[in-house]
């Protein structure tokens, strides 16, 4: 933590960055984002196991990125999100510096995003055991039971879109659900409206989701909507040889090859 504060202070003093995005203590033992712009405020920065929010969501936010070059405290899921964002031209070396935190909670310096990418590629995205078990259980359900499972789980959703807001990959200026000419997704949070929203969200994240669980952690109603994106990751692995964010990548959902398997077309 001292290393992090020291480095953040140096960067701000040297004007190498305009803002350091990190974590600070929040309410009731939670942590939250802090945007440090003055060297004397770097003492507020913290890092510990409670820091699970994906700060990459802020890197595409208008009022944050307009401050100038950003440095961000980045754990492995945050770094993965950054690489995916770089591949989609949302961040680059001129506007972002990564203050990496290794899975062993050590500060690691990166010269550029290419170095971040190499670090990220040392680790595979693995779905945790508890969620894997849940996904297996859902897979084994007969179609009607699976349908009812999702209808019931999605029923409480009131479409606050916290899942979208907290997702680093949901940076679109105008989301599909915000269009009304034509209207693709029903606005009311009734059965059909909720179902279509969550399916659309999951499919837009196929081959982009870095499995950080920001959507699930953000949901005020604790809907297990991350199971949908986790399932997409498994599908990406089975059908397209896995998924690892890369700066120069062929995107899973927007790349066509003549020898692509078509066994998923019913």
């Amino acid at each position: 933590m001292d290393d992090l504060r020291k480095r953040a202070k140096e960067l701000l003093e040297a004007s190498a960055v305009k803002v350091v995005i990190g974590y600070e203590n929040g309410t009731e033992n939670k942590t939250r984002a802090i945007f440090v712009e003055k060297p004397e405020d770097t003492g507020k920065l913290i890092f510990d196991s409670r820091c699970i929010m994906n700060l990459a969501s802020y890197l595409t936010k208008h009022e944050v990125k307009n401050k100038g070059k950003m440095a961000v405290t980045a754990t492995l899921p945050v770094m993965r999100a950054i690489i995916q964002l770089a591949s989609e031209f949302q961040v680059n070396d001129s506007n972002l510096l990564v203050l990496g935190i290794t899975p062993e909670s050590k500060l690691i310096e990166f010269k550029d995003l290419a170095e971040v990418e190499s670090f990220v590629h040392k680790y595979q995205i693995e779905i945790d055991v508890r969620n894997k078990e849940m996904l297996d259980k859902i897979d084994k359900m007969p179609a009607s039971e699976r349908w009812n499972f999702w209808i019931k789980e999605l029923a409480p959703c009131f479409k606050c879109y916290a899942c979208r807001a907290a997702c680093p990959m949901c940076y679109c200026h105008r989301c599909t659900v915000d269009f009304n000419q034509p209207q693709w997704i029903p606005v009311p949070s009734h059965e059909l409206g909720n179902l279509e929203w969550h399916i659309m969200r999951a499919v837009h994240l196929a081959g982009r989701c870095v499995d950080c669980d920001a959507c699930y952690n953000a949901c005020p109603l604790a809907i297990p909507l991350n199971l949908l994106t986790k399932r997409m990751l498994i599908d990406a692995k089975e059908h397209f040889g896995g998924y690892q964010p890369a700066i120069k990548a062929e995107h899973l959902m927007s790349t066509y090859k003549p020898d692509d398997k078509e066994n998923f077309i019913l």
Partner: peptide, 28 residues
């Protein structure tokens, strides 16, 4: 600006609020 930098722009606060009353009218 200072207070809202960390606001992600979702509607969770409004939807759990006992007094937030804004609504939209949709024709289906």
């Amino acid at each position: 600006v200072q207070q809202s930098l960390k606001c992600l722009g979702c509607g969770a606060c409004a939807y759990v609020c006992p007094t937030c009353a804004c609504f939209d009218i949709q024709d289906e």
